[in-house]
Nucleic acid binder design. Sequence first.
DNA 1: CGAATGACAGATATTGAAATCTGTCAGCTG
DNA 2: CAGCTGACAGATTTCAATATCTGTCATTCG
Lengths: 195, 195
Amino acid sequence: MAPTSETLTAERILEATEEVLRRHGPAKATVVDVARALGVSHGSVYRHFRTKAALREAVTKRWLDRTSGELSGIVAADRDPETRLRDWLAALFAAKRRKAGDDPELFATYTVLTDENGTAVGEHIADLTSQLTRIIEAGVATGDFAAIDPEATARAVFQATGRFHDPCYAREWEEPGAESDFRAVVDLLVRGLRP
Amino acid sequence: MAPTSETLTAERILEATEEVLRRHGPAKATVVDVARALGVSHGSVYRHFRTKAALREAVTKRWLDRTSGELSGIVAADRDPETRLRDWLAALFAAKRRKAGDDPELFATYTVLTDENGTAVGEHIADLTSQLTRIIEAGVATGDFAAIDPEATARAVFQATGRFHDPCYAREWEEPGAESDFRAVVDLLVRGLRP
DNA sequence: CGAATGACAGATATTGAAATCTGTCAGCTG
DNA sequence: CAGCTGACAGATTTCAATATCTGTCATTCG
């Protein structure tokens, strides 16, 4: 982490914060650590982020947005709605599971944020639900799905698959039955969506 | 809590422990407290329960079994399977929500136990899933439900409704949308079960 | 003049010593 | 002799003193 002499931007701070979080975990990462990693005083960090919570939230938001981005490709894909729905849910499960495994410390940060009821997590969920809504609307349009209220239905699908994307279940994602449990739930939900 | 002079039984210890847990919460309740409440030495408690964890688990088991008992009546009820399924899920949601509200300290104990992966919670879940399996089997028999593997389907239904009975969501059970979210998920699942 | 600094007050976290608790067991008691 | 006790060792928790951190702001620097 050689302190570059480039101007200090929010982006560079987020980069450094992510690195510090990865190394120290959410409980031990301090703003002073971040400033040290950047070779600046911690006061400078506060010029870009009002509080430590705001910084943590910004890092998490960036991290969550990467997932949303991956998934949005599936929403727009050129396939029948049922396949898109199955792919989307599978991709969400895979992405969360991968993040929990590869970046345990960042994942812990995300979990902390969930508990704190930050807006970033709420927005992420709203974003994902809206992607789901679009897939379901497409299915209603083609006659593949029957849903009176696509948005409520999307929320129901999202909540019903919580076990496979909600951080509070992260421990169980690596257990043997997880994959087949996932298929069973998705099959049931897809059957429920059909006219 | 006047120390009765009756013989010390496992049952009396469980009674006293529940009271101590209710009063102090899982973090502060000690075996010494339980012994004091009973007017005996803590060594006597260890005659009936090998460890503190075993005592905590026994209390939780008793408490969980009360819920299982309430629900088993619905499994045996004289109604069509779909109604039984809906009633059973609604009763499970209501029971958990009530317990979280009325006995927050005991509920916290239950949550701690879930995290510790004690067998009592696993057995409780197995018990509930087997009740669900019986309802689904009944539905398959009458032709109301189509399920190739009733047990796997029961597990799927249980997992898909996790948001409405898993302690990690307890906070959200009192929020305004909870009831309608519940109905949306149950409707979707019931549709998925129909032939 | 805008960006960065570093000293500061109050809040939070760490630390290590003292208190309490868990689990055992030899011996007491009815 | 079955059931209970209380002293004990080691583990855990508490508590208060100390150190560190968060967030602010008057001042410096380029």
